[in-house]
Design a protein around this nucleic acid. Sequence first.
DNA 1: CTGAAAGCGCTAACAG
DNA 2: CTGTTAGCGCTTTCAG
Lengths: 328, 328
Amino acid sequence: MANIQQIAQHAGVSVATVSRVLNNATSVTPETRRKVEVAIKALNYQPSMLGRNLRNSESRLMLVLLPSISNPFYTEIINGIQNTAIANNYNILLCETDSKPERENIYFNMVKNKLADGIISMDPTVNMQKLNELSKDHPVILCSEYEQGGSIPYVTVDSEVAAYQAVKHLIKLGNEKIALINSDEKFLYARLRRAGYERALKEFKLPIRDEWIYNTKELEFEHGVQAMRMLLQLEEQPNAVFAVSDTLAIGALKALNNGIKVDHPIAIMGFDNISFSSMTNPTLTTVAQPMYKMGCLAAEMLMSSMKGEKVESIVMDHELIIRESTML
Amino acid sequence: MANIQQIAQHAGVSVATVSRVLNNATSVTPETRRKVEVAIKALNYQPSMLGRNLRNSESRLMLVLLPSISNPFYTEIINGIQNTAIANNYNILLCETDSKPERENIYFNMVKNKLADGIISMDPTVNMQKLNELSKDHPVILCSEYEQGGSIPYVTVDSEVAAYQAVKHLIKLGNEKIALINSDEKFLYARLRRAGYERALKEFKLPIRDEWIYNTKELEFEHGVQAMRMLLQLEEQPNAVFAVSDTLAIGALKALNNGIKVDHPIAIMGFDNISFSSMTNPTLTTVAQPMYKMGCLAAEMLMSSMKGEKVESIVMDHELIIRESTML
DNA sequence: CTGAAAGCGCTAACAG
DNA sequence: CTGTTAGCGCTTTCAG
């Protein structure tokens, strides 16, 4: 791979001039420019980002922190981030933390090292204290999970209201015994969705029963299956279930399909609207989050922040998608 | 952020000594080392990868090329790559090409630029000519899709044999009218799987009928739904379907579940064994690829190649996973 | 309009 | 065992 030196030599100009042509910055004679361009073609030259980055002390890389790439919820957001980033000549580095602090540290250090210009965190398990620390000197955006009253800008949906509306829908359908499959309530979104669930129940004077609230450790299908099995073992089975993620809801559906006999149909409601949710049998009723758009916005916010602009948090609209799993 | 200079000053030593401590290379007095370490702590110093990379002309970044992050088939492989990479102090950069040549070029250039040390391509749409070109001077590994007789090392499964066995299983179940939902046959894996399909049919003297072979443009669920709808419209409906990807098979299952009435049950077989495939109703019979392991191997092969070692291609074992969709 | 030269942060000869 | 120094490839003053 040729370097700028060789181009300069080949073109019979100085490296400075080559650099000028590269960045088509200040005035260069058309004639000179042509000579340089010829040399670039001839030697099939590509400027080294390493040199450029060192000099400019930027990497044009955004880090995207997430617990696991396997959840389709994240993949949709990533698509949005990626497209926006590329359109602005940025690249993204996907950072699966696997909820391991060591990994998180690697990535934080990359930012501190200037190996990456900023970070979008979608990881609910992120060490908020460290992230806040980092955000003092570096651009940081939160996507989906955020910190209430925190100082890091975020893009998210209103989980409380969304859950409230979801459960209300289940109630209006005539269900009175509504269970909740929630994830770990150390996460804000989990607490908010539970709050929405409880608000709806209270509004309709329905009982909030502990045995109808099941908390899972993770969001994989299997945990949804597990949760539903527990609920089906109860003496008094619920007749509707609100799961805080489509993956859990799909697991619940599975448990229902091939599991223990139930005396009556059970309605299932998910959250996210991942693409698989319309492929299940029955198809899944869910609360749609505008994931792709959230990704785009997060990337835009990060770029604003990198330019030093002040960035406002955004709460996006959600939408109830009614499908077969609640039409019994 | 402090730099090496400041650490040297703070510790009262030269930058070379600091560098030595950092890379715990050659002998440094315990005393000197301590002084440096104190300075590092005091100034909360992190060595700049940018400087280091430029100097060493390596980035410890592997590029992973894939058409789209949304296919769960890839996410499993990525997990393997990622874990192996991190264990070896590498990071991966996910590169969705979206099957767009411009994007591909960006990533190829990153490698040429020394911004990345090597590339693992899982993208069937990749420009093989350019990739071969690149592989002359840079480490390149193919994962899943590969080039027959090409010079780039790959890790894959034997698609022909796998398809053959899958279809044979359908035949042994008593099915005589077997359809194929294939993807675009410009891809090698698609051609191989079709070949396996045809070999099985021929062996059992079953007819190969053009109208029972449907080629989709993409692998999303929707295309599977589409394909199945077409097959169901045929005068003579098949009684089993082999789809070359689980996503297509799941779409086919969906079409079957809520679509046109069929006179007889239709068996469905997929390929990949993505995690969804056990969540469908009925659960999906499929050919399992060891995706996670393939990812690990691909990463190991790339690292070998980066060390200048010669790398041999690997064909992994597949496995038939029998589930409900073929038990009618 | 163009060139010379400094310097981004680091590592690795080479000397001492 | 440690310091000096050159240089990785680039951009950007500052002169001319």
